[in-house]
Design a protein around this nucleic acid. Sequence first.
DNA 1: TTAATACATAAGCACATTATTATCTATCAA
DNA 2: TTGATAGATAATAATGTGCTTATGTATTAA
Lengths: 116, 116
Amino acid sequence: MSTKSIDSIEKAAQILKLLGDKTRLSMVKLIENNECCVCEFVDIYQASQPSISQHLRKLRDAELVKERRKGQWVFYSLNKESQYYEFVLGILESVPSQDERLKELEKQGLRISCCE
Amino acid sequence: MSTKSIDSIEKAAQILKLLGDKTRLSMVKLIENNECCVCEFVDIYQASQPSISQHLRKLRDAELVKERRKGQWVFYSLNKESQYYEFVLGILESVPSQDERLKELEKQGLRISCCE
DNA sequence: TTAATACATAAGCACATTATTATCTATCAA
DNA sequence: TTGATAGATAATAATGTGCTTATGTATTAA
């Protein structure tokens, strides 16, 4: 079960700190409606692969995102089972859509859209 | 005018980072409904005065809070004129009330409740 | 005027965070 | 198999953050 309210001020601060990085915030906003793999993030943010992986690890450790392996790719999405899902969703509501970045990727033919 | 939506991902991340510290988040939640002065924060968080002042400065620089001098005290409150007021308010909705901390202060007779 | 209280700010240090580089595993395609 | 691609992780370097200490200003009370 997830409610919008957070039980402790420390936990709330921890989640806000995680979202308080522009790369992570943008990634989380992006996977609100899309499933993305690591190499897509690398292209979108012009960042190194380890840098992206480390951001994702923090989000995964906090159980805000979940991963799904599909062949050689690992796809990330928002963890809807998280206790904090609604809290995060409430914040994302006020954050500008990042879907343009994905469209840009598609235009370059770099979007990973594998079967199934 | 303030809307819940933030124009840029960078600005949103900046605000979330500011709120992503448990002392600052608690202070902001506290002054959602109360006006507090620096020395009260010092008592409440058992922190040094410069430490509290530095937190408040960051919040003030981002225009999330405003100050009001009253004699020797400086009282802080949420800046309702801020462009980001509703965004902050939306987050605070999910954050547990910190009013108990003020009640505790009153019990100890340390609450500054000056005239007017 | 003097002392005390409230607060701000600057400098320095300790610790946390982020990015890079290097290396390792897993999957897929030849 | 072998090579290439995707990704994770460890070690390290660069940067940022938050705290303490020291000091300055403003206000009040003596």
